[in-house]
């Protein structure tokens, strides 16, 4: 009973924001197609072209932000209603999987509708991120079943990973006091956007490293995302590993978290 209650509660809590998000996506697509239709009427079609790519990535950002906001209220509500941290943690995974599967499915529906509508116009090119990243794999099959299937699976893993990263940050911030929050946020910014680029450039220019660290990291990212091999399944495995690592770290933080005054 309680198990399903906390599951339903967590889903219900963000129902409104999910609906608003999809209304924005629909409005954006409607705007694109409407603009295209109007432009077709007032100018020559060949002079006008719209590329729609990456709108399917928007839910990942949304789910990352969702993850960032998913802990405090649910944790407090759980403890108020006699739900243990373990039950909450398991339910959070179930909720995240539901969202990942549901939103990945919606992604495919949007992709199908977008591609179908784009096929009526010569001036719109509608494609998913997967088609851009693994362009060789899907070349010549813009509407194949395999694309939709792999797209669907890829986004489940991607959304689950973004959710787990957001949730981990949310839990970590809950555990920190104000000074720690400030130190970590500021420290991350300095490290990632000031110190790292400086050191990277310096080591390369001084000849200490023959290749830039950022270049190595990019190559690593390409490898774990299966870009070089043009294999999205490598990316799925990598994203699964990221999710497992994030969830494990989150559990270490959650299991001894107490209520804050």
């Amino acid at each position: 009973m309680k198990l399903s209650a906390i599951y339903k509660f967590q889903l219900a809590e963000h129902k409104r924001s999910i609906i608003v998000f999809y209304l924005v996506i629909i409005a954006t697509l409607a705007f694109v197609f409407a603009t295209n239709a109007v432009s077709g009427l007032i100018s020559s079609q060949s002079a006008f072209s719209i590329q729609v790519t990456g709108i399917d990535l928007a839910p990942a950002i949304f789910l990352f932000v969702y993850g960032l906001n998913a802990f405090k209220e649910n944790f407090q509500m759980s403890l108020q209603n006699g739900i243990s941290r373990k039950t909450l943690f398991i339910n959070q995974i179930a909720v995240d999987l539901t969202l990942a599967v549901g939103m990945s499915l919606l992604n495919q529906i949007f992709l199908f509708i977008g591609k179908s509508m784009a096929s009526f116009f010569n001036t719109i090119q509608y494609s998913s991120i997967l088609e851009k990243i693994y362009d060789l794999r899907y070349a010549g099959h813009p509407n194949g079943l395999m694309l939709y299937l792999e797209n669907f699976l890829f986004y489940i893993f991607l959304f689950a990973a973004f959710l787990s990263i957001g949730y981990f940050i949310s839990v970590a911030f809950y555990r920190m006091n104000k000074k720690q929050k400030f130190a970590y946020s500021f420290g991350f910014y300095i490290l990632a956007f000031v110190a790292f680029p400086l050191i990277d450039e310096l080591l390369y220019k001084l000849g200490i490293f023959s290749v830039q660290i950022s270049e190595v990291l990019l190559r690593f990212l390409y490898a774990i995302m299966g870009v070089s091999a043009q294999n999205p399944y490598i990316a799925m495995i990598s994203l699964l590993i990221i999710s497992i690592i994030m969830r494990s770290l989150t559990w270490l933080l959650v299991r001894k978290t107490g209520i804050k005054n």
């Binding site: 809590e13 209220e73 403890l79 108020q80 006699g82």
Partner: peptide, 13 residues
């Protein structure tokens, strides 16, 4: 499940 605490601090959203 057998206990309910009405606490000074509000834990409801």
């Amino acid at each position: 499940n057998k206990v309910y605490l009405m606490s000074e601090k509000n834990l409801y959203p």
